[in-house]
Write a protein that binds this DNA or RNA. Structure first.
Lengths: 214, 214, 214, 214
DNA sequence: CATGAATGAGGTTTCATTCAT
DNA sequence: TATGAATGAAACCTCATTCAT
């Protein structure tokens, strides 16, 4: 995918009609289907259009180029993750820190696992779509939610630093990713869920104490 | 009219003359140069050969196809990381666990940072070369070394489970990756180094206690 | 980085618009043109496309690979020959054997000569396209037609064996080929026409008598 | 194989030393080996050299280009066939025509069958080496021998025309080729041997009578 | 709006041939 | 003479994208 001119990543037109919405949706889903079924390097715009039951021309009416298509899918996926985290944070307000961390992490891992196949497949296209930038935005959302939630934890006297929050989130996302890419069995995923909670809890405790001692 | 054949990843020919050793080396380095300078999707065999100062034909004398080239580079990088970890483990034998973890993590992060640009660039090609498989192999090496080292720690009465080791390593690699991809400043990297130690130490402690309590 | 897949010989897409029918035809004809004008080893897909007045991409929309293109041309040519033989057989039903053989052979030789240049040029590409297999199929068609026709000859009491029919056809095709490749002058071709009739007639007679005497 | 400059087909140097002769021979045999084992399109000069146990450079010392190599092999094979025919003609001098034809044809078919695999494989490279020209030369040799032999047959009063001889030879070679390419079983080959004799005998008889009647 | 035929730059790979060692 | 590393033209084929219908 060559990138010469400044590429437009935003969908080209806002779907105002019902039909368009359905088409956009179909293309979006088809992209995931093809990605999962044929793999990232078999993912061509023609194939996606075919799978979506429309012509390439139509695809290009709604997504100005291939990147924007991948971008949309990646963004959609990350939004779902962010929402899961935000939702968990919302519901954990007022709980003690340990419980809060537990809830959030389990929500995150579960959301990730629910579509683990998509998750891993998307790692492979992230590179073509400035995935890191998207990841940063998503991470920021989650970190903000987490930080806000922690502020409501009754047993937290010393608020963790911004960087500590980032570490927690990086550990969450990074460890999950590593385990997933290592080819995790369902049993290992269950283990991961428990240990990740332990890991973040103990780190948060340690980081806060360390800070207190300063 | 091409023929089909199982794609080989192994280098095609072992250089017997001095001249060709230099050539292989030049191609290898050129690949990294191009990857860094032009990006993963500008990385063509022609461009690599050009940068290496040889003809495409020569490139194909040593690497049977593009994949094998990328594979070699990825493998080389991962070997360096594994070696760094193994070296640190070797030297940390007999030390107390906390110190041991500190040494290993710092070695890992430092090795990663020393060639941070390559590290992140390689994430992008990993997909084309069965990176995960390679990563698994490298991870196994490191985990074995770490496990063996821990067995020599005088303050460890209850050996950690295999999975705990895997968690430590996944946390190490995953968190580092996340932080790197978030576009880490040097300051943040310094922070990462410290906090990762804390994170792994506290997790290991917690995981061991949890186990003891069972 | 290409993928391996079983090479397909069938045309890739059936033209639905009028425009593409013309395109397919143009490519087909261009292939023959190039084959005749430039020779078999100058026959590249690019050159064919150029001659057809389309882009390579277009060529590959209709023929999945070079082989399929050659295959199509070879098949087309052989079909024409088979049809000529079948047509002659059809029209010779009920005639005496000698006359029948005369008609069929003359039809065959004439069809071959009408496009003698293509015929000889195609010999050269047959190797790349499993020509023998194609030839076998075509031969079978002709032999079946011939056999059926002979069954209607009033003066045939003892039907020739299958192998005898095959000999007749092999002699027809083989001798013609040899004479053609020897660089036949028009005069020689006229001679061939006559003598081939004689040859097959006398062989058939002899083979039948031999059989009768057994 | 592009042919721009007037290509030299003759071996580059006359082997004067024993070593050279052995080398030339080895390369020659290796070519056949590769042709049979790997097929015509896997037949590369490098591979031939490798199989012969010499370097490409050495190969080019004795054969100025790939064509000359193929040419040599093709020529060698055809010479063997011609010699077989000539030898048979020599030994059939003075015999009656029918017997003579039988001897010659059986000699030809047997020679062909003895190395049937090479025969068919060579059909495939003949195109790249002006096979027809070679074939013409070989055919001429055989036809001359046959003509001379027939002149010694006691039962021949009216000598056959030149063209009749050519027909006999074309039928011989062409029919054999057709049957071979049809994928002949050993049983069919035996059949071919007998019927080809019959075919040529009856044709010769008929052609001579026809001529007499004029 | 939808279609899908057409485009063509550009990517990967091969292999006959040369020439410094 | 023999070697084999190096060459590079040229072949095949893909696929994001456009635009006439």
């Amino acid at each position: 995918m060559p990138q010469n001119a400044p590429p437009a990543l935003e969908p080209r037109k806002t779907p105002v009609q019902a039909r368009s919405t359905a088409t956009v949706e179909a293309i979006y889903e088809a992209t995931i289907q093809v990605l999962l079924g044929d793999g990232a390097d078999r993912l061509t715009t023609t194939r996606v259009a075919e799978r979506a039951g429309v012509s390439v021309g139509t695809l290009y009416q709604y997504y100005p180029n291939k990147q924007s298509l991948l971008f949309a899918v990646l963004e959609g996926h990350m939004n779902k993750l962010s929402e899961a985290v935000e939702f968990a944070c919302e519901h954990a307000r007022g709980k003690p820190l340990a419980e809060m961390v537990k809830d959030v992490i389990e929500a995150f891992v579960d959301a990730k696992m629910e579509r683990a196949d998509i998750s891993t497949a998307l790692y492979r296209i992230a590179a073509d779509v400035d995935g890191p930038a998207l990841a940063r935005r998503a991470a920021q959302r989650s970190q903000n939610a987490l930080e806000a939630a922690i502020r409501t934890a009754p047993d937290v006297t010393l608020r963790p630093e911004k960087f500590t929050i980032q570490m927690v989130f990086s550990a969450m996302a990074g460890t999950t990713r590593s385990v997933l890419e290592a080819g995790a069995s369902p049993a290992m995923v269950r283990n991961l869920r428990g240990h990740l909670v332990l890991l973040c809890q103990s780190y948060l405790a340690a980081a806060t104490q360390t800070r207190a001692r300063r």
